[in-house]
Simulated assay, not measured.
Amino acid sequence: MSAGTPAARHELRVDWPDCRARGLCAELLPERIALDEWGYPVLLGPVPADELTLAREAVTACPRRALHLVPRRP
């Protein structure tokens, strides 16, 4: 972590049985979520503090409630 990077204390998790690969999460948070060839999310590391608001919006927008923002494990 560089001096100007906020500490990442949260991470995203996907509840795979509930995910239906709609891709809305990746549209809302492309900095942290990419899509695989079937449209399922690929999580791109922990969520820095300056992206928490966007991450919360992506979690809230998930139509199946399959995306979660959780505290990062030590």
Rank of each mutant, 00 (worst) to 15 (best):
T53H: 10
R56F: 02
L29S: 08
H68N: 00
Y40S: 14
M1P: 07
R56M: 13
D36E: 11
M1N: 06
T60I: 05
V70A: 07
V70E: 12
C25T: 00
D36R: 10
H68T: 01
L54P: 01
A7I: 07
L28T: 01
R65M: 04
L35N: 09
W38M: 14
L43S: 09
W16G: 02
V70C: 06
L44W: 02
S2M: 10
G23S: 09
L12Q: 04
I33R: 02
R13W: 05
A34R: 15
E27P: 00
R73I: 02
T53R: 13
V42W: 05
G39L: 13
A55F: 03
P17S: 13
A3H: 10
Y40L: 15
L52N: 05
V42T: 12
E11M: 14
E37L: 14
L43F: 06
E57T: 11
A8S: 15
L44Y: 03
L35I: 10
W38V: 09
A8C: 09
E57W: 03
V47R: 05
V42K: 11
C25D: 08
V70I: 13
V59P: 01
H10W: 08
V70Q: 09
E51V: 05
C25Q: 01
R65I: 00
A55Y: 01
W38S: 14
P63H: 04
R13M: 09
D50K: 10
D36P: 11
P17D: 11
A34E: 15
E31Y: 05
D15A: 13
G4N: 11
P41Q: 06
A26R: 05
E57A: 15
A61T: 00
H68E: 13
L28V: 03
R56A: 14
T60S: 08
G4P: 13
L52T: 08
A61E: 05
S2I: 02
G4D: 13
P48I: 10
W38Q: 15
L69W: 03
W38N: 14
E27N: 02
V42R: 15
A7K: 12
V42D: 09
E51M: 15
L52M: 11
A8E: 10
T53C: 08
W38R: 15
L43G: 09
A55P: 04
L29I: 07
T60D: 12
R32Q: 15
V70K: 02
R65W: 00
L67A: 04
L44D: 12
E11Q: 14
T5F: 09
L29N: 03
L29Q: 04
P48M: 11
V14I: 15
A66K: 02
P30Q: 10
V47N: 05
H10L: 12
A7E: 14
V59M: 07
P6F: 07
P41S: 10
W16V: 15
L44A: 12
A3F: 07
L67T: 00
D18L: 15
L43K: 06
T5I: 14
A58H: 02
R22K: 09
A66P: 00
L24H: 00
V14H: 04
E37Q: 14
G23H: 05
V70M: 07
R56D: 06
R13A: 14
S2K: 11
L43Q: 07
A7T: 08
R73G: 13
V70H: 01
G45A: 12
S2R: 13
